[in-house]
Design a protein around this nucleic acid. Sequence first.
DNA 1: CGATGAATTGAAAACGTTTTCGTGAAAAGG
DNA 2: CCTTTTCACGAAAACGTTTTCAATTCATCG
Lengths: 341, 341
Amino acid sequence: MVRLKDIAERVGVSISTVSRVIQNDSSRNVNPEIKRKVWMAVKEMGYTPNENARRLVYSSEEKKRQTKRIGWLANPRIANENPYFSKIFIGISETLNKAGYSLLLLHSDDLEEENQFQRMVREKEIEGILLVDPVRKETLAELKKWIPVVGVDFNYSDHSLSVVDYDREEAAWKGVEHLVSKGHTRIGFIGGGVDGDLHLEKRFKGYLKAMREFGLEINEKFIVDTEWYLERSYEWLKMTIEQSDGDLPTGFLCASDLLAIAAMRAVQEKGLSIPDDVAFVGIDNNDLAQYVVPALTTISIPQYEMGVVAAKALLNLIAEESDRIDLKTFVATELIIRKST
Amino acid sequence: MVRLKDIAERVGVSISTVSRVIQNDSSRNVNPEIKRKVWMAVKEMGYTPNENARRLVYSSEEKKRQTKRIGWLANPRIANENPYFSKIFIGISETLNKAGYSLLLLHSDDLEEENQFQRMVREKEIEGILLVDPVRKETLAELKKWIPVVGVDFNYSDHSLSVVDYDREEAAWKGVEHLVSKGHTRIGFIGGGVDGDLHLEKRFKGYLKAMREFGLEINEKFIVDTEWYLERSYEWLKMTIEQSDGDLPTGFLCASDLLAIAAMRAVQEKGLSIPDDVAFVGIDNNDLAQYVVPALTTISIPQYEMGVVAAKALLNLIAEESDRIDLKTFVATELIIRKST
DNA sequence: CGATGAATTGAAAACGTTTTCGTGAAAAGG
DNA sequence: CCTTTTCACGAAAACGTTTTCAATTCATCG
């Protein structure tokens, strides 16, 4: 392996001089002729600096060497199953790459065994963290002391954290409003009510809010606790249609497009027509939403843009030491009307 | 920041002794009493080793300090768009995590500016590479000299490389065979013929092979060059139905489930019935395939398992310096019959 | 009881950088 | 022409570890 020393010997100067050339710092003066020779030697001998040595030098508290790497902290089971996430991910990945950063994938389970993290942060193995999976409030507070963090795709009001998200309540609200505008009054909600899952909860809240605002009756029988499971959506609706005595909702807001598509299948199998007998609105604007039959009306969420915005926010946070105010950034959602309503 | 020295002073022993304790190497003898004291001090003072210093020591060619990190080398635009990939990804990610490894995301575009890579490999920032996006043969050969590499989800015959993949030709073949068994003789292929995209190419080859084997006529008019674009599949079929003079295929093999779903939409809009007028077979077994109407017959690919197998293969390669024979591992695909045929 | 060997410890070198400090030479100022 | 400043460079310390080598103690054996 080629060291500074080897180059120094080859060129016939001291290590210090070579180091100065390598760092390309114009503030330090070094003879142009020597510079040229050093660079030649570097090329010829295939020298690349040893980052470990470099980082070791910079290991005082004050100055830290950038590692150009940021951590993507998520619960992979949740955060990757959903194709929805991959778009956010692409937005982030591309933006960071443009800025010369790469992503290190971290499992949020490992966060609690703190030693690893402490070390990573102290030695700047990562310069910032993109948080996808909400973590405990205290853990977050601790984390934020040491390293810039930006959250994506969630937004706990009691977390003090810069966040890029969209207004889930509003999105759900828009869906109900659209159904109302189409004349529906009995409107159900598919996507599970409560219990921990923030994403579902907020959508549900938006549904409730809209229902109340429009003075509609909320029938608990038609609020379906599917969580994210497509089977449940499908099975529940099939069963419900069989047992219904004519009081079936004429419209459903679904917490995701996939839930909607699964539900629509049940409806169609039972010989009912969409949107004449039952109408559906999804949330997501999944790639497929426009290709199912009938094409699904949905609330589109600009996932790629969320990723881009989040990545940029984090890079800013890293760049400026000041300005540590928590920023809540919301991207706009949009109702896309298709054939299912 | 707490150093070995600080602990040594606190406990009243030398740095060397502390170092020996920290490394927990039973082969080195150290007084149990001292051991205890050192660990206590470590806990109290919150010491964690400086990895940079450690790696610096281990920077001779012979011995290298493990960094427990492996690189996921891909073209993110291609490798993440497709939900199909995320399953492979989860398989990989979970397997690696269990083994204490984390993933560093690398953009294959950056591979060509070799310096960064050289350094990464030399300093063991990554111990191995999972290759998702096929790279140039020469680049690959160079890479393999320095670091273990395992390819996933592709399989160039002229690449000498350990690979985990499935038999694309066979998968496509199975699809055609199924259509034939249902009595179809005019069978089209949606998913673009040739030109660079290996995945499509192989599926197409399998289609051709099956068609020849079953003695069926191949009509170039019904081989659709959609690449992966859903719109194209949809638009083409719509147009073709309009202009057809009764010679429309009665069955289509589609290179992906999504292409099939988009195509099915066109057929349904034109008032034709599936599977009576036209039958469809997809490839993938997308989550949604069973929920579209009619449910899609498809060839399922065990994506998660591919990820697991690939990760394990790479870990093996890293563990044993020997056994550098290229292994081609194929996971089995399976025909899943639903309502679209 | 002296010799042998094992167990335990510390001093110091090494890993490859960056940077501080000092020195001599050249340039600038009077 | 002498003094001061700037420029160009080298020697050496420092970063936090690991490891080699030697020194010391202590038990064991004949």
